[in-house]
Design a protein around this nucleic acid. Sequence first.
DNA 1: ATTATGACGGTTC
DNA 2: AGAACCGCCATAA
Length: 104
Amino acid sequence: MAAPSGDEFVEHVCSIVASIPPGRVMTYGDVAAVLGSRGARAVGQIMARYGTDLPWWRVIRSGGHPPAGHEDRALPHYRDEGTPLRDLPESYRIDYPAARWSHG
DNA sequence: ATTATGACGGTTC
DNA sequence: AGAACCGCCATAA
């Protein structure tokens, strides 16, 4: 496993992200909020480090924008999962209110 | 303990 | 709407 035992934060983030169903998305802030923290950035760090084995594209920024620097990689995933998109085809952003997923 | 960094968030200009 | 600034959190050096 990429995450050694003891890192609850990492384990939690991975678990939450992995629990997001296809076609749904959560913001970094939401994931952090589930952990009782506000480390949206910290979540991004984990995605950058351990997200390689996770559906990282289901984690977006507030406002419905996909992960910075990974828009092109995420787009095909959204189209494949039927995630509601907006502002196509010029640019695109996730229909956050519609695709938002609650951890519970 | 202190500093710097990052797949962020929100406010302000 | 785009850029700048500050705040928050976890990790690495």
